[in-house]
């Protein structure tokens, strides 16, 4: 993987400011002529990470395909807040069928395009974490296994937010949801459960798998562009904080996405054909508390007496990620950079 990461160090964050960059280095999202695939006027909550993620990802995909894009969408927040007839925020051809079948619907679209010889039009499918790791998992695995020409994007907000914040197979340990309440001796979601879908996707040996967040726009757009340069099954897992479900401030969405990475809880990496090929190092590691404390879904872990034991267990999860993916740069690596 060769790419030139954009680095511009601002006070208090590592975000790159577009206005300080050359035109060629700016994000698609900052371009006046961007496609606005998911345009304004939709009903997403203030600070919705999923709305940001979808707009960023699809506009990047539109640029990469010269506007020749069709989308399949699973049932969920993204589907509901973007559409109820007669209104729609979608400026791309868009089909919602069911909760659990977006990957298969996308396969059908790709099959139709292939048989008609329309190689210019590309297919994306999108779903939340429930539609991806739970109810849509069978169809997703089938789409991966057949290597169908589909980019599947999971906007992961770590629970069923559309139905009122119930636990999904992507809900992290100790997190409070409506079906894993913060009561009893083991408050919140159980430890030792859940699916790591990016790694499951890698195990399918598909051409491209990547993780991203709404905090790193350049990174997200680059990964979408890379995905669209490849044919076959591709998977992009985007962490999208949810102020409603995480009980966090709307203004903290980007901060939380960044802290998820810097704590090690959400590793950023790319994999091709079954192998991890690139990892984004943590530039300033933070303890998981920094990430957890901003979220009401972990409120029961803090205060007096709190549950420092559970916080330590969550820190172990982060440490395991850091070790597994080599997220923290060694001294030698830092020198090179």
């Amino acid at each position: 993987m060769t790419h030139d990461p954009v680095r511009f160090y601002q006070v208090g964050s590592f975000a790159a400011g577009n206005r300080l960059l050359d035109q060629g280095q700016r994000t698609e999202q900052s371009r006046r002529g961007r496609s606005n695939s998911l345009t304004s006027g939709h009903r997403a909550c203030q600070g919705c990470g999923e709305a940001l993620g979808a707009r960023y990802a699809l506009d990047a995909a539109m640029r990469a395909t010269d506007g020749r894009l069709v989308a399949a969408n699973a049932t969920g927040c993204l589907e509901v807040f973007s559409t109820p007839y007669p209104e729609t925020s979608w400026q791309i051809p868009w089909l919602h069928s069911l909760f659990g079948n977006a990957p298969a619907v996308a396969t059908g679209m790709a099959a139709a395009l292939e048989v008609k010889g329309r190689t210019d039009v590309r297919v994306v499918a999108q779903a939340g974490d429930g539609g991806t790791v739970d109810i849509g998992f069978g169809c997703l695995s089938g789409m991966f296994e057949r290597n169908d020409d589909v980019l599947f994007i999971c906007y992961d907000n770590e629970a069923y937010m559309n139905t009122g914040v119930q636990r999904s197979g992507a809900t992290p340990p100790a997190a409070r949801t409506a079906t894993t309440e913060a009561v009893g001796p083991e408050p919140g979601n159980e430890f030792g459960q859940g699916k790591d879908l990016p790694r499951i996707a890698i195990a399918h040996g598909i051409p491209y798998v990547a993780t991203a967040t709404v905090a790193e726009l350049h990174d997200l757009e680059r990964k979408v562009e890379r995905a669209m340069s490849i044919r076959g099954a591709r998977y992009l897992h985007v962490l999208v904080p949810c102020p409603l479900g995480w009980a966090s401030a709307s203004s903290d969405t980007i901060r939380l996405a960044r802290l998820a990475c810097e704590s090690g809880l959400f590793p950023l990496f790319e994999a091709e054909n079954g192998e991890v090929v690139d990892v984004t190092k943590i530039r300033r590691q933070v303890p998981v508390e920094d990430y957890l404390k901003l979220q009401g879904r972990y409120r029961h872990l803090f205060g007096d007496p709190g549950r420092p034991d559970l916080v330590r267990q969550i820190q172990k999860v982060a440490d395991r990620n850091i070790e597994r993916f080599g997220l923290v740069a060694t001294g030698a690596e830092q020198e090179v950079r």
Binding site: V70, A72, L95, S97, L98, G100, N101, A104, V105, A106, T107, G108, M109, A110, A111, A112, L113, K116, G138, C139, G142
Partner: peptide
């Protein structure tokens, strides 16, 4: 479930 879903996607694509 996938058989009918793939058919849905293909049919919607014409």
């Amino acid at each position: 479930f996938a058989a009918m879903s793939v058919s849905i996607g293909a049919s919607a694509m014409g």
